[in-house]
């Protein structure tokens, strides 16, 4: 497998291999020397045509820990903001000798276009395309859940995960539904009907409009950000009403199962989908998700670009 465009590109065994590899990468990140020679001589380009903090610095840290050369290419201050097409950008990257392109783009399908355009030879890694997918985020979420609730190995069978909020615009939700169910977890989506996509009936998930009744039944809760920048219409009457019905606060936190964890892909809208005291509570693993993100992205870069062919075991 050459590119990581969608969770659908991964079978269950390979997804588990990525999580297992991340376990070992985490050990390196905790050690005294946070550097491996593994990708020496490889060039990784971070092509970010949309704002991002966490994902970009996470991929950058991951590539640097594996000794790859990193070139950051962001929309602002580059030829993308002058209207350069994806094709011309890709040909530039080819000329630079990029072994991998980590692409974040506001258009759904941009990563596929880049991978299938035959404009460049490198590996394409989707770091979020429009409202479509964000596979590395789903992998780091699955990694975080597995570490806390499944002993850090195997699949997620028997666990129940709630994904709460703006499912409609969320590539994080799409990738997470695909990956968590692939790994054997049960997924419940909690959202106002206006923020659920039409095709949700065909997804292998349960749907609830009553957050309070779901809280005591789940092992992990993934809160999604209300994406003001993608909301062209009115999806709910007011921020306060959304917050009252679908936000998590101290009273709701008290309803959760003991030992359950609370996640958020960031950036958080404190006071909207998550209250400040909950974001900073002991059950919140939001900061740890960032650290886990580096381990997962090291695993992805290693498995997709270190070698020359398909993965072998042993």
């Amino acid at each position: 497998m050459k590119h990581l465009l969608s969770i659908n590109d991964l079978d269950k065994d390979f997804a588990i291999t990525i999580l297992d590899t991340a376990n070992e990468m985490a050990r390196v990140s905790e050690g005294p020397v946070k550097k491996l020679p593994t990708l020496r001589g490889k060039t990784v380009v971070n092509l970010f045509a949309e704002d991002s903090t966490r994902t970009r610095i996470s991929f950058e840290a991951a590539a640097k820990r594996l000794s790859a050369d990193v070139i950051n290419f962001t929309a602002k201050g580059s030829s993308i903001s002058k209207g350069e097409s994806l094709k011309d950008t890709a040909q530039t990257l080819q000329a630079l000798g990029a072994d991998a392109v980590v692409i974040r783009h506001p258009a759904s399908g941009a990563a596929h276009r880049l991978a299938q355009g035959r404009w460049m030879n490198g590996t394409v890694i989707n770091a979020g395309d429009g409202t479509h997918e964000h596979p590395s985020q789903a992998l780091l979420d699955a990694y975080t859940i597995r570490k806390h609730l499944a002993g850090g190995k195997g699949d997620l069978k028997g666990l129940r995960v709630a994904i709460v909020g703006d499912i409609l615009h969320s590539r994080v939700a799409r990738s997470n539904v695909l990956l968590l169910t692939k790994l054997g977890a049960e997924v419940v989506l909690v959202a106002p009907p206006t923020l659920l996509p039409h095709e949700v009936q065909a997804w292998p998930v349960k749907i609830s409009y009553d957050f309070n009744s779901v809280l005591p039944t789940v092992d992990a809760i993934i809160m999604l950000r209300i994406q003001q920048e993608r909301m062209s219409d009115l999806y709910f009457p007011s921020d306060r009403e959304y917050s009252t019905l679908f936000g998590i606060n101290s009273e709701r936190l008290a309803l959760t199962k003991s030992g359950s964890i609370l996640m958020h892909p960031g950036p958080m809208n404190r006071g909207l989908e998550i209250s400040a005291e909950v974001a900073d509570s002991a059950q919140s693993v939001v900061v740890e998700q960032v650290a886990n993100g580096v381990s997962i992205r090291m695993a992805i870069l290693y498995l997709f670009i270190a070698g020359s062919q398909e993965l072998v075991n042993g």
């Binding site: 390196v28 491996l36 593994t38 498995l303 270190a306 070698g307 020359s308 062919q309 072998v312």
Partner: peptide, 13 residues
């Protein structure tokens, strides 16, 4: 991760 033939063969778990 420290092998000198990583470039030459498929990545190993």
């Amino acid at each position: 991760l420290h092998r000198d033939d990583l470039r030459l063969r498929a990545p190993r778990a």
